[in-house]
Amino acid sequence: MANAYKIALGQFIPADTPVHSLDPRAKIIMVMAVIILLFVTHTAAAFTLWFLLLMYVARLSKIPAGVLFSSTKPVLILIIFTSCLHIFSVPGEKLFSVFGISATKEGFILAFLISFRLALIVMYASLLTLTTSPSRISDGLEGLMSPFSRIGLPSHDIAMMITIALRFIPTLFEETSRIIKAQESRGADFESGGPVKRAMAYIPVLVPLFVIIFRRADNLAVAMEARGYRGGSCRTRLNPLRWRKCDSMAVILLGVLSALIIFGERLLVR
């Protein structure tokens, strides 16, 4: 039990690489920029280039590609659903039909492109959480939001809330699987029956889950208070945010690469 912990999806993997040591603000800005730019590009060629860039950064940060791919699991259902929608709803050259609704070649192409884009968005976002610890993400967010604190935005509180929420994700998974096991061991049936029956079987899991999570959150609040936490004012940092030359370089490099991809795509389409 002690050392057999599992890696939860998208959870920080510590390492000493140039990607890990970038300023979290730079990483957040870049990931957000890429996600926006993914919506500006539309061709398979451009997506392939974005994918290659992702793989390159993943290699730099020593994140195994498999971990990155498996981070798309939670959105798999969404990807399948939207794909089906596109395959059967886009007009064009008919390939085959199911229940009188025809699937089209154009539908398949569009479904492929949209799935590709969705997977890329998720993987870029995971790259951020895989290479940045929750506290650094929270520091970065706080730094980015701090201009707004002058107009009354509680930037520290928001950032701390995000950190704690991220910290509780693995706990939530652990507790859920423990409770399921405890009930399964007493004959609760999670395996048979239709989807509705199976979903219903999970209701008794939620009650103890909330009880446990609330109690633990309570305990954590006391523990934080006992360690002198009084909110954002006059808190210092072990690793204060420092924007270095390499952060600027990374942002500029990404800007140039993005411009090249977008410009190249325009040329191609024309």
């Binding site: 506290s135 910290r167 633990r216």
Partner: peptide, 12 residues
């Protein structure tokens, strides 16, 4: 406190 799991705030 008693339970180590309940007093840990950060991830590293």
């Amino acid at each position: 406190f008693q339970n180590p799991e309940d007093q840990i705030v950060a991830s590293t």
